[in-house]
Design a protein around this nucleic acid. Structure first.
Lengths: 218, 218
DNA sequence: CGTAAAATTATTCAGATGTATAACTACTGG
DNA sequence: CCAGTAGTTATACATCTGAATAATTTTACG
């Protein structure tokens, strides 16, 4: 009886593979149904590796959570950074990236919600959440401030923070609702709803973000 | 050796008691840690009763979820209904009720998120979610329409729905962020942020909802 | 080419979990 | 006051779970 043939992966590759398998299983079966054995099978390894790479199942799940959060903000942030120069367009792209694929996915929202539920009773989850939230809020503030300035709107630090909080709430809310209620209304509406709502929240003239002046929509 | 003394409760009381114990345990330990034994202990009964009243643990948890969702919307809806006559004030109260106690609580949000995570892979959870969402959206549309009309703003069915979607996103987002990030910024700001943001979303003159004309703020 | 170290598998184990069943007891109606 | 019923407890059980350990195989290196 021969053992299963296997391949050695680099530390980073194996860890990533395991974290991704964890996310797949949590999304498919919930935290409850995501057993070490199932995750290992998804990653095409045996359960022992979890201990080897993460020490415990909980530690692996925490790492997977941080991995997910990082991915989500990175995608949105990249979208904005890709449009250097025009501050309006940067904010617009950042907003839209949060409510379009790949960030707008039922699986991602589902995962996020599952993990958020754990923030309350697991201090280490709380720490990961806090970190991720702060980073997202800072990103948003940094994008909002120049836009307000360009449009000659009040842009004190306090005002920017307040706007960032409201925008963040709007983003998260629409992101969730949009992903969870796919089918109830067209998801194509979401980016427009978000951008238009953001204009209003920031007190910008209608169309400032929807039809950037300096660049042509394609 | 005497058995534990016990009291017979009516079917409704016992079921409610078990559902509330379920919510307490899920909030405290997550779906994973909320075992039948712990829930039974919280309700001060033995585990066998779960089978007797709900057939299975999963069925009990589903009932607890529906119970929670109903409670949340009922609280907000009641807040609005308590202010008959002034449509602006009704909308205002509805909005505020969603981001103030008792609805604004880390435990409620945590529970809600935990359950949402299950919507994706459990069709029966999806059904409960869909139902609750539709009800909330309808409530919101019914509140928004007269306000728009009174302020002579466009108020077609389509426009109302669009506004309701955005508002719902904003509410959920701020509700979550506010509950999860207690401490990062004052929760007292939330109702004001939400009301002000809603005015802007609906295109109402500043202060329409924050300082209702017919009634004096106290 | 061979050898040691590290990665991976296979197996084992103690404990927890959901549920089924049997025994008991509080309430109800006569 | 007494019996029957159903709510409730107590116990048993098969299964699963996370983790620990031992055995094996791949890879790196001299």
């Amino acid at each position: 009886m021969s053992r299963k043939a296997f391949q050695r992966l680099s530390l980073d590759d194996r860890r990533r593979s395991l974290m991704e398998a964890t996310l797949v299983c949590v999304a498919q079966f919930g935290l409850h149904g995501a057993t070490v054995r199932r995750i290992a099978e998804e990653a095409d390894v045996t359960a022992g590796l979890v201990r080897h790479y993460f020490g415990s199942k909980d530690e692996m799940i925490r790492n997977a959570y941080a991995y997910l959060v990082g991915q989500l903000t990175a995608r949105a942030s990249d979208s904005a950074r890709r449009t250097e120069g025009d501050t309006d367009l940067q904010l617009r792209q950042f907003l839209r990236a949060n409510v379009t694929m790949p960030n707008l996915s039922e699986q991602k929202v589902s995962l996020w919600a599952t993990f958020i539920g754990r923030v309350r009773y697991d201090p280490q989850f709380a720490e990961i959440h806090r970190e991720g939230y702060r980073e997202f809020l800072n990103l948003l503030e940094a994008l909002v401030e120049p836009v307000l300035m360009a449009h000659k709107r009040p842009h004190s630090a306090a005002i920017c923070k307040r706007h960032a909080i409201a925008l963040n709430g709007l983003i998260d809310g629409l992101w969730m609702e949009g992903s969870l209620n796919a089918g109830l209304y067209s998801q194509a509406l979401l980016p427009d709803i978000l951008v238009e709502a953001s204009e209003r929240l920031l007190g910008l003239p209608p169309g400032s973000l929807s039809k950037p002046q300096t660049t042509q929509e394609q």
